[in-house]
Design a protein around this nucleic acid. Structure first.
Length: 243
DNA sequence: CACATTTGACCGTG
DNA sequence: CACGGTCAAATGTG
């Protein structure tokens, strides 16, 4: 339950930050919309954790929520939740933000589809999750890409936390890209056989935005520890991807 | 001491 | 052979 509270707190902080930065971000629609997406993710995380908890308490014998039950979640599904929260605790400004969020979702869909068409962008190098080494690769792993705004303060080198624990295992200079790509995997990879991984890289044309590609997502999430620990169970990628 | 990060080496793919 | 993903030893941190 503590995780849920933390997620909600984090989401609230993000909202506050956005509110403060609103004047600065007024002429940066892309950053602005991504910031809103980030808020959505935080709330999504809280919601998913709540679902996990409720399922666990209702039927202790049933397995925890599986990944494929959660990945189909679209941002729209959580929009209602957010809207309710915004309405209840904030003013018109936040309503406007919500409207902007809806717009940004549509915009991003277009952007992403264009990108994956491989038409241009990123100088042909792109972040195609192309394969190379089959060492531990799963046969039918999913790869999901999201854009995340970089922190406006604090350690801007780190991608914003998505509520879960990743362990960095590599960094590479990518040809044709200004910024290095960082490689992360589940901190508790061994403990829970969590195969989730992600790559994070700043966009060439906008260093304020991280591109995060998740891969090797386990189809069946291992059971979380019954005793809540300081770190969340590694259903990591279940939550972070508002596709 | 345990765990995380850094970074050069390694190796499969195209 | 170049590129990019991963490994693993060295190093850092609490």
């Amino acid at each position: 339950m503590e995780e849920v509270i933390n997620s909600i707190r984090r989401a609230s902080e993000l909202v506050q930050n956005l509110q403060q930065d609103l004047p600065n971000l007024a002429n940066q629609p892309e950053t602005l919309s991504l910031s809103i997406d980030q808020i959505t993710q935080a709330f999504t995380a809280a919601k998913e954790q709540l679902l996990l908890i409720s399922r666990h308490t209702q039927t202790s014998e049933s397995p925890p929520m599986l990944l494929h039950e959660t990945t189909p979640h679209q941002p729209q599904m959580d929009a209602t939740l957010i809207q309710e929260w915004l309405r209840s605790s904030h003013t018109v400004t936040m309503d406007q933000l919500f409207q902007m969020q809806l717009a940004s979702m549509a915009a991003r869909e277009v952007e992403d589809s264009e990108r994956t068409m491989g038409s241009e962008g990123d100088q042909g190098q792109g972040i195609h999750a192309s394969s190379s080494r089959p060492r531990r690769r799963e046969a039918n792993q999913e790869k999901k890409k999201i854009l995340v705004p970089a922190p406006q303060f604090g350690n801007t080198e780190m991608p914003p936390e998505d509520g879960f624990t990743w362990r960095k295992y590599g960094q590479k200079e990518i040809l044709g890209s200004k910024y290095p790509r960082s490689y992360y995997r589940c901190t508790h990879q061994k403990l829970y056989e969590c195969q989730a991984k992600k790559m994070v890289q700043r966009l060439d044309h906008n260093a304020n935005i991280f591109e995060s590609i998740s891969a090797s997502i386990p189809l069946v999430a291992p059971p979380p520890p019954l005793v809540a620990g300081p770190d969340p169970p590694p259903q990591d990628t279940v939550l972070i991807i508002p596709w």
